[in-house]
Amino acid sequence: MHIVDGALSVPVLVTGAVLTIAGVAMGLKKMDYDHLPQVGVLSAAFFIASYIHLPIGFSSVHLILNGLIGLALGWAAFPALLVALFLQAVFFGFGGFVVLGVNTLNIALPAVMMYYLCRHGVSSSSANVAAIWGAIGGAGAIVMTTLMVALSLMLSGEAFALAAKATFIAHIPVMIIEGFVTAAAVLLIRQVKPEFLGIDEERAYG
């Protein structure tokens, strides 16, 4: 889902960078020093989780899990994802450097959107309802991310239109898988550590 350096046009790059700076500023403001270890450790956990490759037919896809990141971190997803993408770019040469703003925005904005959309759903007292909202969050984040990647490509030149469409189609299986995985993760977290999703134990099980 990363875009490499050199493909995007200057207006897209600048817009991405500006919006990412705004998002990161917002995230940093909401995150006090006491939450730093928590966000840092979760950011590392997502970094690792995003390297889980699941087989699909003859190929394999890797998880992105930005829906779950959003549910867990809210606005702090912006700085957490910026750090993760920066580390990947610098130490693995994965993704670009100048496109860091666009890449962060494409992954973190859907995460924050899913936070607002599904936050109430996943803390529902019914496990089935929570699982469905978890699935919506997981799949929805990938849908949004793919659309935003496609949009960044299309805005950079008409010649990318086909590649943009292909990106979307290629990611449909990822959307489905992320939906299932996120729903299962939400179910487990509800059982094991409900306060993680902002659930009052008494409300959920009282």
Binding site: V181, A183, A185, L188, I189
Partner: peptide, 17 residues
């Protein structure tokens, strides 16, 4: 597989937290 991996991710997050 997806459910098991979902549980794995969830547990990883809980342990990390």
């Amino acid at each position: 597989t997806w459910r098991a991996i979902g549980y794995l991710v969830g547990m990883l997050l809980v342990h990390s937290l």
